[in-house]
Structure formats: C-alpha cells, structure tokens
Design a protein around this nucleic acid. Structure first.
Lengths: 216, 216
DNA sequence: GAATGTGAACGCATTCACAGCT
DNA sequence: AGCTGTGAATGCGTTCACATTC
C-alpha cells in the first residue's frame, strides 16, 4: 500500500530504483517469477538491505518468507518513478549524441516518446528520424507547434555555446523541465527544473581512480 | 602544498572538481585572473563553503583576503584528478553514442586521446574517424595491437547483449579499467575497475521530480 | 575588510540487528 | 526456516562558525 506522505527520499534511492527496474526486467526475461532482495542485490551489485530500505520508503511490496513478485514489483516501481504514464520529449540538437538518444530502444518500453526533433542546420532540417518524425527548424518552433506536440520536457544536445539561448527560448514557449547534455552549466529561474548531465565528469572520475591505484 | 596522506575523499568531491575545472576555464576565457570561492560557486551553482572544503582535502590553493588564481588552480585540480598527463582510450562500438564521444572536443584539451576504435560490423570497419584513426575489426584485436597502441582504459558503447563478452575479451588482453555506456550491468573480477554510466537513469530521475511537482 | 581554511555540529544515507510474517 | 520490513546505530558528506591570513 502506498503511504500518503513520505519522509524525505534520498536522491540515491531514486537512482537505484531505475537500476532495480532494469534488472527486474532482465530477471523476468530469464523466466523468473519471484526474486528475493538477495537475488536482486546480486544482479544489481548493491546490498540487499539497501534494496529493502529503498522500497520501504514507498510501502510494502514483498511477501515475508518468499520475496518479491517480479511482475508486480516492476509495476510498483514504475508507479513510484512516474513511469506508469507516457512522457513526451523533444530533442534540440541533431548531432551524434542526439541521434544516439533518439535511437536508444529502452525509451519506448519505459513510456518515453519523442514528439519533436529540432536543429538550426539547413543540411539537417527535413531529415527523417523515424516514420512520422522529421528534423524541424528550431527557429520556426513556436507556441502553435508546442501546443500540437505537447512535450513534457526538452532534451538539450546542442553545442555548449548555444545551449543557454535554446533553453531561454523554450522557457518562453512554456517548457518547464529540461535535461541538458551540453557540456556547460545553464542558468534557469527558480520555477524551472533543469538537470545537467556532465558526461566528461565520468571520465575524470575514472581517471582519478586509476591514478590513485597506479600512482601514475 | 599537497598532503601526503588524505582522509577519505567523498566521491561527490571528485565529481565537483571536474565541474570546477570546466567553470574555471570559462572564467579564464572571459578574461578573469583571480576568483573567490563565492564567484566560482555562483558559476558552478554550488555553495562557496563546499568549494573551500573540497579543495581543503588536497591542500591550500588560495590566498586569504584575495581568492584563487584561476590559472594555477586549474593546474592544481588537474594534478589532483590525474589530468596532468595523457590518457589513451580505446572505444568499442562505433554507433551514434560512440561517434558522439569520439567527436567531443573537450577530451583533447583535458588530455584524453583516442588510440583505437573497434566494431564488428563489416560496413563500419575501415571507416575513417580522424586522420590516422580508422575503425578496426574487434575480432582482430590482439595482444600485439594492444602493445602498439597502449590504451589506459576502454570505453564500451556496444549494444547491451554483447557488452559482457567484449569486456571479457579485453580483460584477457590486459585492459584493467572500463567505462561502460551500454545499458546493462557488467560483472568484472575484483582486480578490474569498471564504472557503469546509466543514461536512462537521468531521464527517470527527471520524470520522478516532474511527477512530484505536477502530481501527474 | 575581505577572503581562505578548518574543527565541530548537523543532517542525510547506509548498514545493523532483529521483530514480524508466511 | 526463510525472507521482508524497520527502528536504532553508524558512518559519511555538508554546512556552520570562526580563527587565520593578506
């Protein structure tokens, strides 16, 4: 049963729920019906107490002495994360990273849907992305188009130097939520939620750890 | 002055150092010479005490009453992260995400260097990546080639179903460090360091936050 | 006066230990 | 007996408050 009001949920718990969800899918595909927190922990590389605690913030999903039903636990986690509904996304910046995201198959099965792709490069405008989806001119994106495609959030994969301008325009068009992959910090007003994904930091972090180990 | 032995450094501190480094670069390009922790905090969207504490784990880099010299602080952070040397990388999987990483300009200026690109798709093998760098057949990758190009770590951007096999082979060839972008958890022995980057978790996390705000 | 550097206090996240079901 | 669920304890990371230096 879902609790009405929760204590503060750790950020890290939400990140792990994503991972549990994908691991559960894998376990289901392998033909399993029920999983213990210990089993799941082994496939996710975390510890089993952590899993039980993470879930306990949101309710009780298992059966003592038995474990968790893989099918219903997936549904429960989707409900917690907000993935029990469809999310319309637009992408700005049809470069390699943009294409990589557009073609990632995992989105569709998790309820994500691309409803628009924009760029300002004449050579790219008009290119086919999928059946029914073509690259459009970002300059021509207006309120009418937004109303038509009804995006929930925007994904930014432009070069860093134009990212702030792109976001500014989208805010004026009423977009309130952003995921930014451009390697630059973007400033937004308080009523807007923008999350930066800083891929090079992952490389730096690996290198820091290698340096420590190797004394390079 | 760098301290010989440090207390345990928070993971998060290392991540932030990456960000400070890129923000300092931006400030330098804008013509600044010196920056206070408060200035830097404003550009990085963190708080100034955090910056001073993060740096204090590694030594003293500023001048009281004045601030930090932008040029030398960048050098100091590079030294801390291990970015004061060159890092040779190989990439396996010449898809869109692989291409995006290969063409990201930020790597070169941070000391990262691509020394090999591999795929098993006949149509891709032989394609030119840069002058002097062509896509090669992953099946033909052997000890001799590894010795020649001398990679420090491998970046995995293959489809998820082959990622584990790719890593297994590379471990046999002597690679000890990995950054995995394939959306699957990869198991490695204790003496190997592999970091998973789970891009869809960033989407899930945004959606969770939107759901909370909008009660969707 | 202005800014850094840091022990101490606080708050958040993980782990422990065990009670509670099946 | 086996596994979940959770208050309590621990450990970790951030923020505070202030001593220190220029």
């Amino acid at each position: 049963m879902y609790k009405g009001k929760y204590p503060k949920i750790p950020e890290a718990t939400i990140k792990r729920l994503s991972i549990y969800l994908r691991c559960l899918k894998k376990l289901e595909e392998e033909g399993n019906i029920v999983v213990s927190s210990q089993n799941l922990a082994d496939t996710c590389c975390v510890n089993s107490t952590q899993i039980r605690k993470d879930l306990s913030y949101f309710g009780e999903f298992g059966t003592r002495g038995v474990g968790y039903n893989i099918k219903t636990l997936q549904e429960d986690i989707k409900k917690i994360l907000g993935l029990d509904t469809t999310w319309n996304m637009i992408l700005v910046g049809f470069g390699n990273l943009g294409k990589a995201l557009l073609h990632y198959k995992g989105f569709h099965e998790s309820g994500y849907k691309w409803v628009g792709v924009f760029d300002n490069d004449k050579d790219l405008i008009g290119q086919k992305v999928f059946d029914n989806l073509y690259v459009e001119d970002f300059k021509k994106l207006d309120n009418k188009k937004i109303k038509e495609i009804n995006p929930d959030f925007a994904v930014i994969t432009t070069p860093p130097d134009v990212a702030q301008d792109v976001v500014n325009k989208l805010i004026l068009l009423g977009i309130k939520y952003f995921l930014n992959f451009a390697p630059t910090k973007i400033k937004v007003p308080d009523n807007i939620l923008l999350k930066n994904v800083f891929i090079i930091a992952e490389f730096d972090n690996l290198v820091y750890n290698i340096s420590k180990i190797e004394n390079k």
